[in-house]
Every structure is written in structure tokens, then in C-alpha cells.
Simulated assay, not measured.
Amino acid sequence: MNPLRWRFRAQFLLGFLVCAALLGYAIFLQLKMGLEPCPLCIFQRIAFAALALLFLIGALHGPRDPAGRKTYGVLAFIAAAVGIGIAGRHVYVQLLPQDMGSSCGPPLSFLSETMGPFEVFRTVLTGTGNCGNIDWQFLGLTMPMWSLVWFAALAVWALVTAFRARRRH
């Protein structure tokens, strides 16, 4: 049973389920294991949620025309690319030596109370708090590294699903 042979709806539903599982695991780690997310983690969650939403809408709509499938694929790719950028920045911050300021500043709640949305976004991405801390690893990769892997895999999945030639029934 080759997933690449599944229909568009099933493939996009799988993308949604993967995103939902990743978000669920992040929330589990936060609530049950006490791992507090940093601002860059929150932005990665937002990117996963946006990607999940696009996968779900694409699966529910299930366009029959190639242009519709390609539109959903490109939109999902863009959401994944944003996630790649955020996760990549987080990995960079984590890999910086501690003495070089590998942190991301005050908590997101404080930033949002004292700054406008664009200033908050810019401040968080400049990496000034606890984003440099490594609280969790699996197979030698940190959570942002795994996020980067998953965003890249889901970006490829969205494009392959959307641009793959389909047989007529």
C-alpha cells in the first residue's frame, strides 16, 4: 500500500494528521512533562497549525482539477517554508555558544503587551530568553531540529501530492 498512490484527499488528510500529532505531542510535553515553550517554539506551533489547516481544507475540498490541487500544494508549501525558516532560526540560536547570547528574550506575553505585532515578530526572530536552552533530545536531535525535519518533509509531501500526475478513472 503505497501512500504516493493514494488519492489527493487521503494524502492531504495524512498531512493534516501528522501536523495534528506533532502539535499534540508538543502540548503533551508542555502540560505533562513541564517543558515550557519559548517564543520561537510558539511560532513553530503556529506554523504547524497553519499547515494543518491548509492540509485539512485541501482534504475536505478535494479539488478534481489540477490547478486546484496545485494551489493547495503551493499554499501548504509556503506555510511549511515559513516553518522551516523559524525552525532554522531556532536551531541556529541553539547552536550558538552560550556566551554569544543564544537566547530569545523576555516571555512572549510580555513582548505582546509592550510592543506591536511586527516588533514582537522581529524581536523574537532576532533571538534575544530561553530559546538557546536544550531541554529535550531524541536520537541526538533537539526539538527545533525535529521540527525542521518535519517541516521539510511536509513541504515535499505537499508538492509531491499536488503536482503528481493522476490517472483518469
Score class of each variant (00 low, 15 high):
Lys70His: 09
Ala158Gly: 07
Leu40Thr: 02
Thr128Met: 12
Phe55Leu: 07
Val120Leu: 04
Trp150Ala: 10
Ala59Phe: 05
Pro107Cys: 08
Pro3Val: 06
Val160Pro: 01
Val124Gln: 04
Asp135Leu: 15
His61Asp: 14
Arg168Ser: 12
Ala165Asn: 12
Val93Pro: 02
Tyr72Ala: 10
Tyr25Lys: 04
Leu54Trp: 08
Ser147Arg: 08
Ser103Val: 15
Gly116Phe: 03
Gly116Ser: 09
Trp136Val: 07
Leu17Gly: 04
Leu35Cys: 04
Ile134Ser: 02
Gly140Pro: 00
Arg164Glu: 06
Thr114Glu: 11
Asp99Tyr: 13
Asp99Glu: 13
Cys38Lys: 12
Leu141Tyr: 11
Leu31Met: 12
Gly101His: 05
Leu96Gly: 00
Ala20Lys: 01
Trp136Ser: 01
Arg166Leu: 09
Ala59Thr: 00
Ala50Ile: 11
Ala158Phe: 10
Leu108Gln: 05
Pro66Val: 09
Ala155Thr: 01
Cys19Ala: 12
Ile134Arg: 06
Tyr25Val: 01
Ala162Gly: 08
Arg122Ala: 15
Leu60Thr: 02
Gly58Phe: 05
Gly105Asp: 07
Ala59Leu: 05
Ala10Cys: 06
Phe55Cys: 05
Gly127Ser: 07
Val93Met: 07
Ala21Ser: 13
Trp150Met: 14
Gly101Trp: 05
Cys41Ser: 03
Val156Gln: 02
Leu56His: 05
Leu40Gly: 02
Pro106Ile: 13
Pro39Ala: 09
Gln98Asn: 10
Pro63Ser: 01
Ile134Lys: 06
Met1Cys: 10
Gly105Leu: 08
Phe12Leu: 12
Gly140Cys: 01
Pro107Val: 05
Gln44Thr: 10
Trp136Thr: 03
Ala153Val: 11
Asn2Arg: 11
Thr128Ala: 13
Leu125Asn: 07
Trp150Leu: 12
Gly129Ile: 06
Val149Gln: 03
Asn2Leu: 11
Leu56Tyr: 10
Cys41Glu: 01
Asp135His: 11
Ala155Ser: 10
Ala47Glu: 10
Cys19Gln: 06
Leu60Cys: 12
Arg45Cys: 03
Gly140Ser: 04
Ala153Pro: 02
Leu125Phe: 10
Asp65Glu: 15
Met33Asp: 09
Phe138Ile: 00
Ala158Trp: 04
Met1Gln: 13
Ser147Met: 08
Trp150Tyr: 15
Ala87Arg: 00
Phe55Lys: 03
Leu111His: 00
Leu95Asn: 14
Val120Trp: 06
Phe8Cys: 02
Leu125Ser: 01
Ala47Asp: 12
Asp65Gln: 14
Leu31Asp: 11
Ala80His: 02
Leu60Lys: 09
Leu51Met: 14
Val91Lys: 05
Tyr72Phe: 15
Met33Ser: 13
Leu17Glu: 08
Glu36Cys: 01
Leu17His: 03
Arg64Glu: 13
Pro144Tyr: 04
Leu125Ile: 09
Val91His: 04
Leu29Ile: 05
